[in-house]
Amino acid sequence: MDQLRNGDTLVVWKLDRRGRRVKDLLDFAGGLCDGGIDFISLTDAIDTTTASGRFFFKIMASLAQVERELMVERTQAGLRAAREQGRVGGRQRIMTDSKIRSARKLLCEGTPLKEVAKNLGVSVPTLYRWVPASKTGQGFDSVAAVVGARDF
């Protein structure tokens, strides 16, 4: 953009690659026009060197904005529908409730931390995240006292 000078023509592949909102596209085109720079969009067949090209540019900019807003509305509606059906986004938890119970039990029995993590197919930091060490500072030896026997 810094290289463009009066009399130059900026050529883009598609109008919506330059911006989504009509105001942004019109401000951009107005800035080009003020600088004496023409604008051509190859896919949309827009050429602002003519009156009809400028008119068509404004119509296409409006359509690009409407298309973007519809896409956002559809995405939000889909996410709402998924939440109503009980689905949540993101990755599935690697530590299920049964794995957490197993980890606590193994750790209370004295199984080394690395071995428990390997058996459950998780990393040691993941194990720490889901089965934190006791608040007494004695490590995993006293997990049962902190958590309670009912969890086993």
Rank of each mutant, 00 (worst) to 15 (best):
R54L: 15
N119Y: 11
S52A: 15
T75K: 13
C33M: 12
F55Y: 03
D34V: 03
G121Q: 12
R93M: 15
V143A: 05
T111V: 10
R83T: 12
K58V: 00
G78I: 01
T75W: 04
R54H: 14
T126F: 05
G30S: 05
K135V: 14
A117P: 06
A64C: 12
G90P: 11
A117W: 00
C33W: 14
G148C: 03
L107W: 04
A45W: 09
R83G: 04
G31Y: 10
Y128A: 01
R83F: 13
E109L: 08
A144W: 04
L63I: 15
G121S: 12
R91H: 07
I40Q: 02
F28R: 09
T136M: 12
D141F: 12
V147Y: 02
D97F: 00
R54T: 05
G35L: 09
D34I: 02
E115V: 04
A82Y: 08
D27V: 10
R91N: 05
N119D: 13
T43P: 03
R80T: 13
R104G: 01
R68H: 04
A145T: 05
L120I: 10
A29W: 03
A149R: 06
A64I: 03
V124Y: 03
P112Y: 05
V72R: 14
G35C: 12
R101N: 09
K99E: 02
T136F: 12
F55M: 12
K135L: 14
M95Y: 02
A133M: 11
K118G: 11
Q65M: 07
G53R: 07
I37C: 06
V72H: 08
L63D: 07
K135W: 05
R80H: 10
T75H: 08
W130P: 05
R101L: 02
V124A: 15
G31C: 03
A29G: 06
I100F: 01
A82P: 01
V131E: 05
R91T: 12
A145Y: 14
F39D: 06
K58D: 07
I94T: 14
